[in-house]
């Protein structure tokens, strides 16, 4: 469940890395802005409009997606494109800078407090194979799988996807084929941001709240998921996200029993970063990655 959200966000990291070799640390903030916009929309039209809950949420998603795509495009155009030929560290620091800018912008617009997502989605529990799931969780997982399927089709079966893969291998060579490389890069940011928007709405709907600082931890974890799967590898990001979600949930569930109650489930966050360290030490190329070695 949590894993699907990580996976969607990790895709944004990995696609941008695959093409630019840039870790877009502002990506978590795009998710956060997606959450915030969706909540604003839902609260505005949801209270007293009499529309059914899911329709209102869908409207929120429908507005968050284009808004985030615009934001992603803006980031690329304004912050990253001028630095295309600059040393990588410069772009990385810029990404961290953009992350801070967006956080503070969100704090000014939406305030410092947690803002809550109205309970519009089905939350009554069902028992499935001994586990307890809610309708919302089922929707999240199904939607994630559908989006991943669509993304894989786009990348592997369409002309645009072929141009994206060619550009990630060699932008110069792709240009010689007549590919407008700048457009492909812009497009990659926009697709990643659209997925981030969906993830943002999911996480707001799941936890029932959003906060201007939520993108930071989420972004780091999704980045971990991307590294776990092999950064630059799209299927790897999907796998890494799902795996990280499972590791975290199991870890949080059992950590009390394992440490004799010394550490509780609020140590959940430890697992993601333990995974990051282990992967970086023992298999820096990730589960499915072999491209990192080639680039280094």
């Amino acid at each position: 469940m949590l894993g699907s959200i990580y996976a969607l966000v990790a895709l944004g990291y990995t696609m941008v890395y695959g093409i630019l070799g840039l870790i877009n640390f502002a990506h978590g903030e795009v998710v956060m802005i997606g959450s915030m916009i969706a909540i604003s929309v839902v609260v505005t039209i949801g209270t007293g409009s009499g529309l059914p809950g899911p329709v209102v949420v869908l409207a929120g998603v429908g507005i968050a997606i284009p808004a985030c795509m615009l934001l992603g495009a803006l980031l690329e155009r304004v912050a990253y494109r001028p630095l295309r030929d600059a040393p990588r560290l410069t772009a990385l620091i810029t990404a961290i800078g953009m992350s801070i800018v967006l956080q503070n912008l969100a704090m000014i617009v939406w305030g410092r407090q947690y803002i809550s997502f109205p309970p519009l989605l089905p939350s009554e529990p069902h028992a499935v194979l001994g586990a307890t799931v809610t309708g919302t969780q089922v929707i999240i997982v199904m939607l994630t799988l559908a989006l991943m399927g669509a993304l894989l089709l786009l990348i592997h079966r369409t002309r645009l996807g072929r141009a994206m893969r060619a550009t990630s291998q060699s932008p110069a060579l792709a240009g010689l084929m007549g590919v407008d490389v700048n457009r492909i890069i812009l497009f990659t940011f926009m697709i990643g941001s659209a997925l981030a928007a969906v993830a943002g709405v999911m996480i707001a709907g799941y936890y029932g709240q959003a906060h201007y600082h939520m993108g930071f931890m989420l972004g780091l974890k999704a980045f971990t998921a991307a590294v776990l799967g092999g950064i630059g590898n799209v299927s790897g990001a999907m796998l890494g996200g799902l795996a990280l979600g499972v590791i975290e949930s199991l870890g949080a569930g059992y950590i009390g029993a394992l440490t004799g109650g010394f550490l509780g489930s609020h140590y959940q966050d430890v697992f993601a970063f333990a995974v990051l360290i282990l992967v970086l030490v023992f298999r820096p190329s990730g589960l499915l990655g072999e491209r990192v070695a080639e680039r280094a």
């Binding site: 002309r159 072929r162 141009a163 893969r165 792709a174 084929m177 007549g178 590919v179």
Partner: peptide, 10 residues
């Protein structure tokens, strides 16, 4: 085949 398709990109 994909390389050849890239040649016909436009």
């Amino acid at each position: 085949a994909e390389n050849l398709d890239m040649g016909a990109y436009l």
